[in-house]
Amino acid sequence: MKETSMKMSLAEQQRRHRSIIVISFLFIGIIVAFLISMNTGVIRMSPLDVLKTLFGFGTTQQHLVLFDFRLPRIIISILIGMGLAVSGAVLQALTRNALADPGIIGINSGAGMVILLFVAFYATPAAAPVYLLPILAWAGGGIAALLVFIISYRKHKGLSSNRLVLNGVAISSGFSAVTILVSLRINPEQYQFVSTWIAGSIWSKDWNYVIALLPFIVILLPFVYYKSQTINVLNLGPPMATGLGAAVAKQQIWLLAAAVGLASSCVAVSGSIGFVGLIAPHLARRLVGQRYQTLLPATALVGGLLVLVADTLARWILQPAEIPTGIVVAVIGAPYFLYLMFRTKG
């Protein structure tokens, strides 16, 4: 008995050690991508120029390019990746469906529709109050999630994960249709914004948007991590979780609200970037395992790295033109989604 306990303890220590190594490498990867991204753009800046500018020794032009254009966009990319990835991980746990994702179950479309309706009231998208955008997006994403969960729930059978995904696709299509109808009645500048948003471009590139998004990420990510043990229990299924003493309905509501808040606030400043919430949790799960105490930090780092790399490539491939970041993510995510579809079917 003692030998078995020692073996289990040793195995647990090895898993923790491996998780720490993986998370450390992911963090280093974000730093490397951060430095590369700061050197990527139409105006060339060498690594030495970047360092000099960071410490206040660059030219006026270099200071403008780095602090007013590149740094806000880089920080927003990382925050968006973290928020969407952790939101996806929570939704996959709550629904126990490997294909659950903020975009697939309609949260992104609901949040985006409200944002676009709000922006349509202003002469230009830039005139819309920045700090209201994440709050309105949260309301829109919450409405979409509520509709999907109500339609998918059956009184005696509970929540069907397959029905959830199918209804999510239907609700998402409905919100997208409303978005298209709105886009037909707006001026050319607003239409350009709509088309850019749908493609998933990080259109919010100044510090005001960083400040608007940051509170949601700073508050909701620690909250979700605080609930990591609860997520482990809920992931076992409602009957088992109830047997272990968890208040299933209450915890599901709190975690769903947090997942919707993370995804919606990110959509408010980035447009419809899909697949991040689907891919990142799966990749992190392969690296660190199923325990959410380590899975959530790894997922956040994988998501941040994925969006940062995608945005850097989007700015670099066709310079001086840019590809929407969402297209680059989709090129990576679509094949992986198909792989998961076939795997789940099997």
Rank of each mutant, 00 (worst) to 15 (best):
T4Q: 10
S5F: 05
M8K: 13
E12G: 08
R18F: 15
I20P: 12
F25H: 07
F27R: 11
I28N: 12
V32G: 06
F34Q: 08
T40Q: 04
M45K: 11
D49L: 10
V50D: 08
L51N: 08
G58I: 13
L64V: 05
F69E: 02
F69Y: 05
I74A: 11
S77M: 15
S87D: 14
R96T: 01
A100P: 13
D101F: 10
G103Q: 10
A111C: 03
A111I: 06
M113E: 00
V114T: 07
F118M: 05
A120S: 15
A120R: 08
A123P: 08
A123C: 03
T124V: 05
I135D: 08
A145M: 13
L147G: 04
V148W: 06
V148E: 03
Y153I: 01
K155Q: 07
G158T: 03
G158A: 03
G158M: 01
L166C: 03
V169Y: 00
A170H: 00
I171P: 02
S172Y: 00
S172L: 03
T179S: 10
L181K: 12
S183C: 13
E189F: 15
S195F: 09
T196R: 12
S204Y: 12
W207H: 01
L213P: 05
V218Y: 00
L221G: 11
L221I: 06
P222W: 12
F223I: 04
F223W: 07
I231W: 15
A241G: 09
L244W: 07
A246V: 03
A247V: 03
A247G: 02
V248H: 04
A257N: 11
L262A: 03
S265D: 14
V267M: 15
V267E: 06
S270V: 00
L278V: 13
H282Y: 10
R291T: 05
R291K: 05
L295F: 11
A298M: 09
T299A: 06
V302W: 01
L305K: 15
A314H: 06
L318C: 09
G326T: 15
V331P: 03
I332H: 12
T344S: 10
T344Y: 10
